[in-house]
């Protein structure tokens, strides 16, 4: 779990540097996570095939429809929930 957390942190750092360039790295996409304040994460494309990640997207669909306010996919759940779900994914 600690390793996973540090991985996610690494992804966050990656995301900050990626924000400056035009395209994110191949195989990744940005997601904005959080209830009021949104944090930008980069997640691997393979997450999109995972039912638990799809469930997070369905939650977001309930809130935003398909029109995401930040442009990038926005997942309006608590950050802990996001970390909990994604830490189980490979």
């Amino acid at each position: 779990m600690a390793l996973v957390r540090s991985l996610l942190v690494a992804k966050k750092i990656l995301s900050r540097s990626a924000a400056a360039v035009s395209a994110p790295p191949k195989g990744f996409l940005a997601v904005y996570v959080g209830e009021s304040q949104k944090k930008r994460y980069l997640v691997p494309l393979s997450y999109l095939n995972q039912p638990s990640f799809q469930a997070l997207l369905s939650k977001s669909e309930e809130e935003f429809g398909f029109d995401h306010p930040m442009g990038g996919l926005t997942i309006p759940c608590p950050e802990d929930t996001f970390i909990n779900v994604t830490s189980r994914l490979h």
């Binding site: 395209a23 994110p24 195989g27 990744f28 996409l29 940005a30 442009g71 990038g72 996919l73």
Partner: peptide, 9 residues
């Protein structure tokens, strides 16, 4: 571009 990803992805 809006979703902050590559077209190929």
């Amino acid at each position: 571009k809006k979703r902050e990803m590559r077209y190929s992805d």
